[in-house]
Design a protein around this nucleic acid. Structure first.
Length: 559
DNA sequence: ATTGCCTGCCC
DNA sequence: ATTCTGC
DNA sequence: GCAGAATGGGCAGGCAAT
């Protein structure tokens, strides 16, 4: 049984060095010595996770729950804790500082106990298993008792772990190398195994138990999802063609990425983060069954909502279908989804991810009726591809994905084989009316800005979104100073300012907002420039935003 | 029974 | 999701 | 060039408070 303290100490050492090799060495020598049944937890914890992927439960513990435990331990009131936390760099730092400042109350135990790795895991398990009335309270009771067993450093680690914010500069890539080193396995073999399984903690155990041999025998298993392959952003078709010369361009649909698995008549649907959403999507299951019957297959695609004319509905609608547990049938009728496939990873036991894209696509076209496929076209001229992009946009889709014809399917990798191309939309000049203090590396700045549009009738400003994106560190520094001068309210976290600074904001879509008084919200807002030349009176009006919102339905469906 | 808050997870 | 930054 | 950090809107579910 390894003390939890040792893992905490390891994390401290990892965070102290910026050398990747040193980090790898530290982790590798640690997990090499660890008993087999502790390896999995150690790997998960170091990566900021609690339960292994595939465990459909979750802790339901985050900031708020931690705060209430901290309150219980310190006896401090909200104001005192707020003061400490608002000045802290992050939650781990805040926890540590609060525990240093107030002598913490602890649950007393019959016997002197030391926290072990397994024990922490068992606490997480218990917390994840609690459901029903008063479960929140019981979860907090368990957290209280867990934190009672922890010293300040362990508490800091736990707080970071529970919020998934380890900040020790150890990512999965380094962990793979550490596993490789610890058990003397080629790193590419470890990487490959992680790709096929989508769970590094399981690979660590297999590596320890069976070495290279165990990893070599790993295959795609139906009903165990792989991480989906991802696309890199591209600015233009030209940029993509310069890189690839010739590529397959596919419509980029604005829906939900689904990895479909089927075998023996059973069908499952997994999301991008590998959660099983089959229950809420009976129509998608029916479609997949229609497409493949009872064949064994793993395929990749996107589900979107469509109106009776076949036009795509805004993402907001699709989103209503996901994870729904009540009224599934009614909801499926109101917002019918449709599956569009674009890749096939396995069929009848034959793994296809190492086949080049064009072969996988060809196979898919041979197997599946065109109506189920994402439209695709191979282009080598900019004109050709631009026309295809225009067609995608005219039909209400988001843009294109360009794919290298001879590329293999690399699960979980965002590489230079797939590119996403989204058109640049007109920007809006909006006014900053408030800001929030940042967190972590931005904790000294005001880094999250409330963006408002003017009502041309009343002259009032209405918030239509927030953003923290687009400024450089240097600009944050300057903006923070300017905003502080304009402040008329400051509680240490939220700062309200006189409307004065105008920023040019890019966005992808205007959505209906249940949250903002304006009734509208920007999707993916980011600042592209600071409009020193504009006054708030010259900023965008809420009336115009409404017009833009309506215009979106020229191409998109409505229900 | 309704509303509000938190969490996790889609994008 | 998007952006900037550090390695 | 890649991964991580910081954080957006909005959805459903599930519990707590009213």
């Amino acid at each position: 049984m390894t003390d939890f303290k040792e893992l905490v100490e390891l994390a401290r050492k990892i965070s102290m060095t910026t050398s990747r090799n040193e980090k790898i060495e530290l982790v590798s020598s640690f997990i090499k010595e660890l008993p087999e049944d502790e390896v999995r937890h150690a790997v998960l914890f170091l990566l900021g996770r609690t339960l292994p992927p595939g465990d459909e439960r979750h802790l339901d513990v985050n900031w708020r729950a931690l705060l209430s435990v901290l309150k219980r331990m310190t006896g401090a009131d909200n104001e005192q804790l707020f003061k400490i936390l608002v000045q802290a760099v992050d939650i781990g730092d805040g926890f540590k500082k609060a525990l240093e400042k107030f002598e913490p109350k602890r649950q007393s135990f019959l016997f002197e106990q030391k926290l072990t790795i397994k024990e922490v895991s068992s606490y997480y398990n218990k917390i994840a298993s609690l459901r029903g009335a008063k479960s929140r309270k019981y979860k907090e009771d368990l957290l209280f008792s867990l934190f009672s067993l922890a010293d300040k450093d362990e508490a800091e680690f736990l707080a970071r772990n529970l919020t998934g914010e380890m900040r020790i500069g150890l990512h999965e890539g380094l962990m793979e190398e550490a596993i490789a080193k610890a058990f003397q396995i080629p790193a590419r073999l470890v990487r490959r195994a992680v790709m096929l399984r989508g769970d590094i903690s399981e690979i660590a155990v297999l590596a320890k138990r069976g070495g290279a041999k165990a990893l070599e025998s790993i295959r795609i298993e139906v009903f165990r999802p792989l991480k989906p392959m991802l696309a890199t952003d591209a600015d233009s078709i030209e940029e993509v063609l310069r890189e690839l010369k010739r590529a397959s361009f596919e419509f980029k649909l604005d829906g939900i990425r689904l990895q479909m698995h089927a075998k023996g008549g059973r069908i499952r649907a997994f999301t991008r983060r590998l959660s099983d959403v089959t229950q809420s999507l009976p129509d998608i299951v029916d479609q997949f069954s229609e497409i493949f019957g009872s064949r064994e297959v793993v395929a990749d695609g996107e589900a979107i909502a469509i109106d009776p004319e076949g036009r795509p509905l805004p993402f907001q609608f699709v989103s209503r279908r996901l994870r729904r547990k009540s009224d599934i049938a009614r909801s499926a009728k109101e917002i019918p989804l449709r599956l569009f496939l674009f890749d096939i990873l396995q069929i009848d036991g034959k793994m296809l991810i190492d086949e080049p894209y064009f072969r996988r696509r060809k196979l898919l076209e041979d197997l599946v009726d065109e109506e189920w496929l994402v439209p695709a076209r191979v282009c080598e001229s900019e004109e050709e591809a631009s026309n295809f992009l225009k067609e995608a946009l005219d039909r209400g889709h988001e843009g294109l994905i360009a794919k290298k014809l001879d590329s293999i399917y690399t699960p979980g990798v965002r590489g230079k084989n797939w590119f996403k191309i989204k058109p640049v939309l007109a920007t809006l000049d909006l006014v900053i009316v408030a800001a929030e203090r940042g967190y972590g590396r931005r904790h000294k700045w005001l880094s999250d800005y409330y963006l408002a549009a003017r009502d041309e009738e009343t002259g009032e400003f209405y918030v239509v979104g927030k953003t923290f994106k687009g400024l450089t560190d240097q600009e944050f520094e300057l903006m923070t100073q300017r905003l502080k001068e304009l402040a008329y309210y400051d509680d240490g976290h939220l700062v309200k300012v006189k409307p004065s600074i105008v920023v040019e904001v890019a966005f992808n879509e205007i959505q209906k907002s249940p949250k903002y008084e304006s009734g509208l919200a920007l999707r993916f807002a980011r600042i592209v420039s600071i409009r020193e030349d504009k006054t708030p009176e010259e900023a965008e009006t809420i009336q115009n935003l409404r017009r833009i919102y309506e215009k979106q339905f020229l191409h998109k469906g409505k229900i």
